[in-house]
Amino acid sequence: MIRFLSRRILSGILTLIAISGVMFLLFYVAPNDPAATIAGPQATNDQIDQVRARLGLDMPVIERYWLFITGLFQGDLGYSFFNKEPVLDSLVRRLPATASLAVGGLVVALGLGVTIGVGAARKPGSWRDKLGTAFVLTGLSVPTFVAGLILLYVFFYLLTVMGLTFFPAAGYVPFTENPLEWARHLLLPWITVGFVAAATYARLVRSQLVSVMGEDYIRTARSKGIREDRVVYRHGMRNVLTPVVTQISLDFAILMGGLVVTERIFGINGIGRLAIDSVNRGDQPVIIGAMLLASLFVVIASILVDLAYALLDSRVRVK
């Protein structure tokens, strides 16, 4: 177990270093000059050079990368080109909003996906199965932003027109301030993020459960006279857990993408929003910081999932 963990952590760190390296290289070879962007369109060449020196952009790229990596290990991600705020601070400040959105979305996705998947798998070929399949295929076909726009149109605009304003159009209220408002503001974004991801889980649970229910040990459980509900939920679902948990780690990267769009549509000031804004401003340190933070989450999630996987599987746990 320790051997396994140490291997995973090592490869996770390698991944992060590789990503930051690639980002650095990309910015280096990119045609546009951040110093010129920041100095403004009217700036003279001297002014641009001044900006470049102030930002440290005049140093060789290897040296800059080395400084960045050493800083990284001390928790220093550099400063924003745009407002000179430490990158780490601005990321941390926006983390709660993004985390609320991500966790809630995942919960919606799992709840919806597992329910639909199990319902479909219990009677393959039934109308419930066909509805489930329809849901899955719709979910896989709808881009997050379309789902978000339609939700906004129906639940915000049409309801407001009818005089029922329940959902706010945009914004985020911290949980610590007002839990109820927090949930009210996030409900539509959660459904947006969750709906699209739910399709993946519904499909996965259905196909896994159908194949598990054909296993010999399910026949054994039935031959003992165990009731069908218990056969499905206890014996069947036990072995569907592992692939579902694995899927969560694979999904995490995709979920992050969903957040960028959702934050934009619902006006939530999270990390995704910050990333888009920084891209438009050419604020390199912030972009790299956001990228690394997101990658870090993905890496951590995948390590946690591998751990959970080992704990869930008796064949790995008990040697």
Partner: peptide
């Protein structure tokens, strides 16, 4: 590594560089 990249984030920063 490709799979663990936050795709959309990476994509938008890439596009912002190349245009």
């Amino acid at each position: 590594t490709t799979l663990s990249l936050p795709q959309l984030l990476f994509a938008i920063s890439l596009v912002s560089l190349v245009g």
